[in-house]
Computed example of a mutant assay.
Amino acid sequence: MKNVILTLFFLGFCFFASAQSQPNVGDELVINEPTAVNYKYVKFPKLNILAKRGKVANYKSVYGDTVIVKEVIANDDGTTHVVLERKDGTKFFGYLKSVKANYNKSIEAGEIAPTT
């Protein structure tokens, strides 16, 4: 009985681990605050570009935003990139309709996270 419970637990863990590594079009993600000053794996514009466009030079306007995966790009080297758009349809920083992100590395770094 103990072995059956442990086996079911292990299979459930494997199912959830594999579900996170493969994004699908339409998945909802949340943009978190980066651990450094800039986002490393989500390709937002640099802060000096935002300042030149007359915007406030910080990323606080995207913290906690819900985004939708619009396209999944699987490369030959095994990396997976996703194209993200805001769920409410507004533009990032007033001029970007979508941004590209390295899915696996940005999840590991905590820059984006699946919604619960």
Score class of each variant (00 low, 15 high):
91 K>L: 10
101 A>R: 00
8 L>P: 03
114 P>G: 05
59 Y>P: 01
39 Y>F: 08
93 F>Y: 13
36 A>S: 13
19 A>M: 14
39 Y>M: 01
14 C>T: 12
99 V>F: 01
27 D>I: 02
21 S>L: 10
104 N>W: 02
40 K>Y: 15
75 N>R: 10
107 I>F: 00
3 N>K: 08
97 K>G: 07
116 T>D: 09
70 K>H: 15
99 V>A: 06
83 V>P: 03
41 Y>D: 05
83 V>C: 04
47 L>W: 06
69 V>A: 05
65 D>Q: 07
35 T>C: 09
21 S>P: 05
6 L>R: 07
1 M>D: 07
93 F>N: 01
114 P>V: 12
111 E>H: 00
40 K>Q: 03
47 L>A: 05
102 N>T: 12
88 D>F: 15
5 I>C: 06
22 Q>Y: 13
75 N>I: 14
75 N>E: 12
101 A>C: 07
11 L>T: 12
82 V>S: 01
107 I>H: 01
43 K>G: 11
105 K>V: 04
13 F>L: 15
112 I>K: 00
11 L>N: 04
54 G>I: 15
87 K>I: 10
22 Q>D: 15
28 E>A: 08
99 V>H: 01
29 L>Q: 00
94 G>K: 09
8 L>W: 12
80 T>I: 14
102 N>M: 09
54 G>D: 09
85 E>Y: 04
90 T>K: 09
31 I>T: 00
76 D>T: 06
36 A>V: 13
51 A>E: 07
85 E>P: 02
100 K>C: 04
81 H>N: 08
107 I>N: 02
110 G>W: 07
95 Y>Q: 06
17 A>Q: 06
43 K>C: 13
76 D>E: 14
27 D>Q: 06
77 D>E: 10
57 A>Y: 05
21 S>C: 13
37 V>R: 13
88 D>N: 15
40 K>F: 12
99 V>C: 08
6 L>N: 07
98 S>I: 08
